[in-house]
């Protein structure tokens, strides 16, 4: 499979779109826009999974797509929105690193991902190699977002985006068992719940969701 063939091209395009959305998450300054971006990324992930299911003839991937659509594109964004409304928090993104530098760091991370994935996957089919590079980039960008944003909600968004990258990698590899998918999905839900509780807790204590306020209290309660 290589360029010019529809299955490859479309999968590639979905991967590229997810990467693009990761950059949009980094670029956006308003929290609601970031959540919208996350929802779109989830929807594209669902499309990518569905497409892979059709190409690989693997019906379990349709289930993955459904889960992704329901959880990533609808439920989690809705939950985050509710959270924002309940907390009546500031709508602008509070960055620990400027938008420009974090974008430049993002491009550097993508280059790193490409440089890492290409040599170690020599001999694997082209589609898996490139998808893996794109997926690893999405994961790294999600992590970057968690590092460079102060707001706890945005850290959750970063985590979700990271997890999107993991699933993208998983669906690209033929023969991934369904149980892995399901367990990851369940894990994510649990993580979301924990994160929600966490956000509420720090909000109650410190009247803000800025996680840097936690720093002075490290090691307390031991």
């Amino acid at each position: 499979m290589s360029f010019g063939q529809l299955p490859y091209d479309v999968a590639h395009l979905f991967g590229g779109a997810m990467l693009l959305l990761s950059f949009m998450l980094l670029y956006q300054r308003r929290v609601t826009a970031v959540i919208n971006g996350l929802a779109i990324q989830g929807a594209i992930l669902a499309c990518a999974a569905g497409w892979q299911g059709w190409v690989q003839g693997a019906p379990q991937l349709y289930l993955t797509a459904l889960i992704a659509l329901a959880a990533k594109a609808v439920l989690i964004p809705l939950a985050l929105r509710v959270l924002i409304r309940r907390l009546a928090m500031d709508r602008t993104v509070d960055t620990a690193m400027g938008i420009g530098p974090s974008l430049i760091a993002g491009v550097a991370l993508v280059a790193l991902a490409i440089l890492v994935v290409l040599p170690i996957t020599a001999g694997v089919r082209a589609i898996a190699r490139e998808d893996l590079a794109l997926a690893l980039s999405v994961v790294l960008l999600g992590m970057l977002m968690m590092i460079t944003r102060r707001n706890a909600i945005l850290q959750v968004v970063g985590l979700m985006s990271m997890e999107n990258g993991l699933i993208l990698a998983a669906v690209g590899v033929a023969g991934m068992p369904l149980v892995v998918e399901l367990s990851t999905a369940a894990l994510v839900m649990v993580v979301l719940v924990v994160a929600g509780v966490f956000v509420f807790q720090i909000r109650e204590r410190f009247d803000s969701v800025d996680v840097s306020l936690l720093d002075p209290h490290r090691g307390e309660g031991r």
């Binding site: 590229g16 491009v107 290409l118 490139e130």
Partner: peptide, 19 residues
């Protein structure tokens, strides 16, 4: 952001021309 996207486009193309 446009500049970085274009750079990314070129970088991805380097990868695929390498493939």
């Amino acid at each position: 952001a446009a500049l970085l996207l274009a750079l990314l486009a070129a970088a991805l193309l380097f990868v695929s021309t390498g493939l």
